[in-house]
Simulated scan of single mutants.
Amino acid sequence: MNGFFDIPSDLQHSWSGLIGLHLREGLLPVAAGLLLALPLAQLCVRFRWLYPPVLGVTTVLYAVPSLAFFVVLIDYTGQTELTVMIPLAVYSLVVLIPAIVDGVRSVPEETLAAATAMGFGPVRRYLQVQLPIAAPAIVAGLRVATVSSISLVSVGALIGNQGALGNLLAAAQKYDRPELAVNSVLTTAVLAILCDAALVLLRILLTPWMPRGTGDRREPAVRRAQPEPEGATR
């Protein structure tokens, strides 16, 4: 069992250090994707003709393998975490933009009319009325994007040990230590489950008026509308 947590020194991190690195490389791109998706989604809601081309572009970008992204980026960002995180942020858009658009469009017209009558401008109405009501759909999209991002971080092992826990997969082959591969797979899976549970808790906190058993009804629609994550083999 000691070998399970005995991380080779050339990885320059302990087991807990790899976990922290993995979370940073997996969650920061989702946060960046959300910041970019919020204004883009609002534009798509305001100008309906814009939604199909935006969705088309994000879908095409999602179809680009991460290795191809690395080849393009590595000349500019080098063998760094940024080279791994930029593609993950781009991939998150294909899930987050439709989730936000779907949630915002579900806000009843009478609610928007009431907010306008109370003097809410477009920005205030979007931030204080539409987004809170759309929270269940947005969190459902975040859950898909987060689990996908955490799994895809491991691909970074192909460019200078930037795959966090995924580096253990390469080390397992290099040192003939299969327990390192088991460590990588199990720890990554546990991190994904814990992050997903944290987002469920966040949804409950953001929408206390909703029954707990109905908060994720939108998620199947989000999943059907988007390509399925391809796991760490992209």
Results as ranks from 00 to 15, higher is better:
M1W: 10
G3E: 12
F4N: 07
F5R: 04
D6H: 12
I7T: 06
P8D: 10
P8G: 10
L11P: 00
Q12I: 09
Q12D: 14
H13G: 01
H13W: 11
S14V: 11
S14H: 04
G17T: 07
G17P: 03
L18K: 02
I19F: 05
G20Y: 03
L21P: 00
H22G: 01
L28T: 07
L28H: 02
L28F: 14
L28G: 02
V30S: 01
A32C: 12
A32H: 08
G33D: 03
P39A: 06
L43N: 00
R46N: 02
R46W: 07
P52A: 08
P52L: 03
V54T: 09
G56W: 05
T58I: 05
T59A: 13
V60G: 03
V60Q: 04
L61H: 03
A63H: 03
V64E: 07
V64C: 06
P65R: 13
S66T: 15
L67I: 15
L67H: 08
F70I: 09
V71M: 13
V71T: 14
I74M: 07
I74N: 01
D75R: 15
T77Q: 08
G78F: 09
Q79T: 13
E81C: 07
L82I: 13
V84P: 00
P87L: 08
P87A: 08
V90H: 04
Y91E: 00
L93I: 06
V94R: 04
L96I: 09
I100Q: 01
I100N: 03
I100P: 04
V101E: 01
S106Q: 14
V107K: 11
V107T: 14
E110F: 10
T111E: 00
A115G: 08
T116N: 08
A117F: 06
M118D: 13
G119N: 05
G119L: 04
F120V: 04
P122A: 05
R124H: 11
R125C: 11
Y126Q: 11
Y126L: 14
L127R: 10
Q128R: 15
V129I: 13
V129S: 06
Q130C: 14
L131Y: 05
L131T: 06
L131W: 02
I133H: 12
A135D: 01
P136T: 03
A137M: 14
V139Y: 01
S148M: 15
S149M: 07
I150T: 01
L152T: 12
V155I: 15
G156V: 11
I159R: 01
G160V: 09
A164W: 04
L165Q: 02
L168E: 02
A170G: 06
A170V: 14
A170M: 11
Y175C: 08
Y175A: 11
P178I: 05
P178K: 05
P178N: 09
E179A: 14
A181K: 06
V182I: 15
N183K: 06
N183Y: 05
S184T: 09
V185S: 09
V185R: 05
L186R: 10
T188I: 12
A189E: 02
A189Y: 10
A189T: 14
A189C: 10
V190P: 02
L191S: 03
I193F: 13
L194W: 10
C195E: 01
L202C: 09
T207G: 02
P208Q: 00
R212Y: 06
T214P: 00
R217L: 13
R218A: 14
R218Q: 11
E219Q: 15
E219F: 14
P220V: 11
R223W: 07
R224Y: 15
E230C: 07
G231N: 04
